[in-house]
Amino acid sequence: MAAPNKKNHDRPTTGHSWDGIEEFDNPMPRWWLWTFYATIIWAVVYWILFPAWPLVRGATAGMLGYSSRADVAAEIQAVDDANAVWYQRLVDTDVNAIHEDADLQRFAVNAGAAVFRAQCSQCHGAGADGIRPGSGFPNLNDDEWMWGGTMDDIVQTVTYGIRNEDFPDARYSEMPSFGRDELLTSEEIDQVVNHVLNISGQAHDAALAEAGAEVFDLNCSSCHGVNGEGDQFQGAPALNNAIWLYGGSEAEIRASVTVAHFGVMPGFTERLNEAQIRAVASYVHQLGGGQ
């Protein structure tokens, strides 16, 4: 230091005075100047070695060939490499035994959640709740499964989809449009609608419902079951509970009987690999309704 104190009394001041306080005009330390020059040299070296100057397209590349994009790619590759062993384990493990390995299950659920957000959430919703009640997209959180809720069932559904013509193994069924195709009269439809309201525990007209029981038995029970309990083999939803794919009000049930709905789901066997399908199945299975 330039001995600011020994000879302070002879030193000039900056000439400024604040409340009588003046500032000595001491010289800057020389190392500070060197440091300043060093930063300039550093900058020049940096320009040469690293991408620095913006050009019209891109920037100067730098001699080291560094790019943050390549860094990201390397990081992603490193994560993929680290995950490869897990994906392999996912494929090697029996699909129904994945949950027995806590670490594998955790990996499967997290990887499956990522797959779900990218591939499934468009229809089923980010929360897998079918976006809203009555949307026609099944809520995967609840305890009703049209095509089965075991790991094997979910893997099959994800792999080949539902009612698509791309895969012969796709699940398939079609409900007739009882009204539009004049299979039932509007009176019979009224009756069967009240019967369905009855078995699902809702307000109904008892006389119509009683008549509707017979209509149901003749036209509906072969798929939806004698008591309306549904049939997973045919993808026929249960009608005797509180869960409705296309809405459970009288008007909505009448609409479904008149013109049948049947939703379509693509098969993912070409878009996802086996490990990803197992992962997303694990994710769906643990949403609260897995069987």
């Binding site: 980010a126 709740d129 959180n141 305890d143």
Partner: peptide
């Protein structure tokens, strides 16, 4: 997301 889930029994979870 979802805030609640309706189960087949009508229970809310």
């Amino acid at each position: 997301n979802p805030t609640y889930v309706t189960l087949s029994s009508g229970a809310i979870r």
